[in-house]
Design a protein around this nucleic acid. Structure first.
Lengths: 153, 153
DNA sequence: CCAATTTTGCTAGCTACCTAGCAAATACGT
DNA sequence: ACGTATTTGCTAGGTAGCTAGCAAAATTGG
């Protein structure tokens, strides 16, 4: 691999990272559209259906998104009647989320989404995937670190 | 690498792709916030400052986003007075975009953003980056393909 | 030359992300 | 016990993405 190729990959990786993220979301969104569910709404439902009632702030940590973002997603699910939200008994600041009967019924009707991962990665060398994960993880950690420094000023 | 590790990487790559994309955008957004510019607004300005006046629909293809998304971004830049938008002489459907004097002035004041790529990828083996690009590109192409099929039904 | 099709950009309405700043509740240190 | 932190979730306002459907302009095929 010559020098030019190297430079090109460094320039391309950002664009492909973005495009891959949106392509995956597009397939997921399109599979969920008949059920009027977004990709993150699906994930919240998955968590509540699978692990049982969960504190909103724990879900924030699981998804690594901002509290304000979660507020909106939960509000949508509550409005649709799929999720219940009530203050925790002992810590009144926290909200406990719990899937409703309607939510559980919908969850049971949803298609299996594992085909998405298969479509994307079947047949790709597992070692290559491991390398990709390492690169993405390293870059992410450095960027998040940089953000701390940049914001701290 | 054992079987468990393999499965784990396949489960992780989606999450890290998303997180890496948002981490990069966060650093970019934070560098541009003092100038009241978003990351894609920056890219449009970059294109117009570097390559000269450009047709809106060509920019749509360059960025691989939807026409409706571009409409909004251009509207914002026009509202801020940084970009001019006028119908093309020969094809009245198309809009020609051109950086304004104000836009060019702002462009001249913007900081160099190449530090972002350096922070993220300096010191990472170029061969690993190449592998990551290949994995992301392959997955993206397959997912975009799948979307065609899923939508065509 | 004209009808049908394609291209382009728009609006409306949605998801999902963010920051900034607020208020209430809890935790902590003296 | 009490004042100061910190934690949690909220609102407001902005960016960037999407689909669906419209209207105008251009292209294409008979």
């Amino acid at each position: 691999m010559d020098r030019e190729r190297k430079d090109t990959d460094r320039e391309l990786i950002g664009a492909w990272t973005k495009r891959c993220y949106f392509a995956g979301r597009a397939v997921m969104d399109s599979a969920l559209r008949p059920y009027d569910l977004g990709s993150v709404q699906w994930y919240v439902l998955y968590q509540l259906a699978t692990a049982g009632p969960t504190m909103q702030r724990d879900l924030v940590r699981l998804l690594t998104i901002e509290r304000a973002t979660m507020t909106g997603i939960v509000a949508t699910l509550v409005r649709k009647g799929l999720v219940g939200q009530e203050p925790d008994r002992v810590d009144q600041r926290q909200k406990l989320l719990r899937i409703t009967a309607t939510g559980a019924k919908l969850w049971g009707e949803l298609p299996d989404l594992s085909f998405i991962r298969s479509v994307a990665f079947d047949g790709i060398d597992e070692a290559d995937i491991a390398v990709a994960v390492r690169v993405l993880q390293t870059a992410t950690e450095r960027l998040e670190n940089q953000l701390q420094k940049g914001t701290a000023s």
